[in-house]
């Protein structure tokens, strides 16, 4: 059974159709990249899978481990192992990063029928994971994303993922706005978490992330459809030819 299976997914925002029939299958252990020009619907796909109420699914199915998740609340999807790294992580003033993560970890554990995390053990786990993304320890005590630089916010997303250990991680343009060092760090974080138990869907505008995180498959998305799929070589070709070729194809 595939980890993620998307069948003929259509979604609209305020009556305007953004996703126009997406089909995609991702197995555990795989990393897929979705590339495409601005406005092609990449981020919409991520948010629809995660359950953002701002989007209306008009048709199709999204199965995670064989279960259709489209009727589930966002928190239920998260507890089932779906994680989304946000393109623009929001600030939560007054709530410390650690406290927030503990609330999240406990909610997930409760769902699985496990007892709450031991405070000391959790802190140890958090510190280990922090090293993966080389995050400054002071960011643990600071309120979630408040006053974080752009790069810190992105690292923090990878850090959340590393702490919560999801089945399926969807990273929405985690590479945008990062300098080369930060990009390497983020890539290192993702690569360390690659495993047979987990799958990744990377949403990116640029090929450069894929120099550091080598995908198993690359999909090109244009105007709400996947117009071409291939291996990592496809990303390199795209970098040279641009999206224009596909845009004409999609319009036809």
């Amino acid at each position: 059974m595939a980890l993620l299976e998307i069948r003929n997914l259509h979604a609209a925002v305020e009556g305007e159709e953004i996703l126009r029939g997406i089909d995609l299958t991702l197995d555990t252990g795989e990393v897929h990249a979705i590339m495409g020009p601005n406005g092609s619907g990449k981020s919409t796909l991520a948010k629809v899978i995660a359950g953002d109420a701002g989007y209306e699914v008009t048709q199709g199915e999204v199965l995670v481990d064989g279960v259709d998740i489209l009727e589930l609340e966002p928190e239920e999807r998260a507890r089932a192992g779906v994680f989304m790294g946000f393109q623009y992580p929001v600030e939560i003033p007054g709530v410390s990063n650690t406290y927030f993560l503990k609330a999240a970890a406990n909610a997930i554990r409760k769902h699985r029928g496990e007892p709450e995390v031991d405070a000391m053990q959790f802190l140890k786990h958090v510190r280990e994971r922090m090293e993966l993304v080389q995050m400054d320890e002071s960011l643990l005590k600071r309120p979630v994303n408040e006053g974080f630089s752009g790069g810190e916010k992105k690292r923090n997303e990878i850090f959340h993922m590393a702490v919560l250990e999801p089945r399926l991680a969807i990273l929405d343009e985690t590479d945008s706005g990062l300098d080369i060092d930060a990009l390497r760090t983020v890539a290192h974080g993702v690569n360390s978490l690659r495993s047979d138990e987990r799958g990744f869907l990377l949403i990116t505008h640029y090929q450069r992330l894929l120099n550091y995180i080598v995908p198993d498959k690359v999909h090109v998305m244009v105007q709400g459809r996947i117009v071409k799929s291939g291996d990592k070589q496809l990303a390199v070709e795209l970098e040279e030819s641009g999206y224009a070729l596909f845009e004409e194809g999609a319009a036809a």
Partner: peptide, 29 residues
């Protein structure tokens, strides 16, 4: 904001808990 609610729930935190988390953060001082 809806964005704050979605951010919390996406991490697995239930909606009710998310509200109290956000409000508690607001009152922390």
């Amino acid at each position: 904001s809806d964005e704050q609610m979605f951010y919390c729930t996406q991490r697995g935190i239930g909606a009710e808990e998310a509200v109290s988390l956000i409000v508690n953060g607001f009152c922390k001082d």
